[in-house]
Design a protein around this nucleic acid. Sequence first.
DNA 1: CCAGTAACTTGATCCAGATCAATCGCTGGC
DNA 2: GCCAGCGATTGATCTGGATCAAGTTACTGG
Lengths: 258, 258
Amino acid sequence: MPPEPIVKLDELRNNCKKCSLYQLCLPMGLEEGDLTKLDDIIQRRRPVEKGEYLYRMGETFTSVYAIRAGSLKSFTSNHEGHEQVLGFHLPGELLGMDAISRQVHTCSAQALETVSVCEIPFDRLESLSQKIPGLQHHLFKLMSEEIQHDHCHLTVLAKSTVESRLASFLVQLSDRYKARGYSTVEFNLSMSRNDIANLLGMAVETISRLFTQFQEQGLLQVERKHVHILQLEQLQTLANNCGIEISENTDNSQQSSS
Amino acid sequence: MPPEPIVKLDELRNNCKKCSLYQLCLPMGLEEGDLTKLDDIIQRRRPVEKGEYLYRMGETFTSVYAIRAGSLKSFTSNHEGHEQVLGFHLPGELLGMDAISRQVHTCSAQALETVSVCEIPFDRLESLSQKIPGLQHHLFKLMSEEIQHDHCHLTVLAKSTVESRLASFLVQLSDRYKARGYSTVEFNLSMSRNDIANLLGMAVETISRLFTQFQEQGLLQVERKHVHILQLEQLQTLANNCGIEISENTDNSQQSSS
DNA sequence: CCAGTAACTTGATCCAGATCAATCGCTGGC
DNA sequence: GCCAGCGATTGATCTGGATCAAGTTACTGG
């Protein structure tokens, strides 16, 4: 058993108002009073240590989880026990919404480092969002974002070259750190090369070689977990995925191509 | 310009109560009165002919669309104009929810054959679901299903063999036809081999060869668009993806692996 | 401080599936 | 009925990245 983690429960007290992730997380855009109501249904939870599970595939779904600190990976496993990493999750993100439709978790969430989360019982969240239009809208938004993100990931996987896959991954991480106010060019990877390889549908060896290659090309410096991006724009060009920067075509005409 | 389609507007009148897709679509689980309210906000729309777009990537998002008849494909395109097919969509499905968060369509939806849809202005749907708990819940469910489906697709793409990808695709189609009360073993593919190849991240030639191979193995018979599955179970075994048939592990214990 | 192990890197080889090329055969227009 | 053209099939070749095989480095617990 790992040593009892040193956490001040006071600091873990749920208080969306004081939370630095305010703008990323659920409470975004809520008013003072509504925020208090949301705070009321959020439950404390002891930190999840590295390697522990927040939930496992197959467990009954009761809550969604907002990440306060640390990072997790989510993954499915098939009958032969082969794992497929679905994504990595950073502070401010909401986890577990894929389980709403079946009331059962369809993937597992495992901590990549010590993680602190806010547990939000979904039935209470649902009835609350029935009363607070802003909350309902925000939940729709969050789920829609997840769909969009999956589309992006899917495009990366279907697309050929391994260079562009890894570039996509790094650029996306950079973007996500940016949204959290961290450096866009310097960060630590909390996940193993194996997890990255799995997420991107390639072999570990290839990840290793690509990091070396990118370094030789002067695109970045990498030292184990630590990554320093030197040419972010070049990486973005390499990535060139899912075309999320949308073309300015906004007319409603329909094209007949029969 | 294509010839004016022959449609009886009466038949197109939105009437969820009479719609055969009742159980698949939005109104599922709603009571009589609520159903009428939903019907009220649904707009008629002239059929979308084969090759025409329901919406295009980059257009402003206003509505989601419920498919009444026909099928569509959705796809993104990147800067070089490379298309990535994201999925095929059948009657009873709701389209366009990925656009909620940005208020802009992040992919295009194109008809694979003549398609009839119910257009549902999203702002009105949102305020209606604020009043009808069942509707809100159902929307959450639908979006959650989409996330889950994307996870499955993603797993298929990341996983190696082409056999299992095509098998997955066929089994999934079979399941979806089943839910609509059609044959699980005999159906027509409304999409081209090219579209299938693109969706599954492989070359058209490979799709062709696999169909031949599957046929030689006695798994199915295929004649252009028409598919007759002879060994559904075998195909399911080949597919063996995303492990959606969840293992019975429902305890809440956490594993320390530090 | 050291042994043992896990994570990562690097090199050599191999193969699944892409690409290239040719043909077939429906389908629709005239 | 004939021809143009696109979609699908089939065959031959090629290659990107997997796999196999050794190291190397860093972290763990004793």
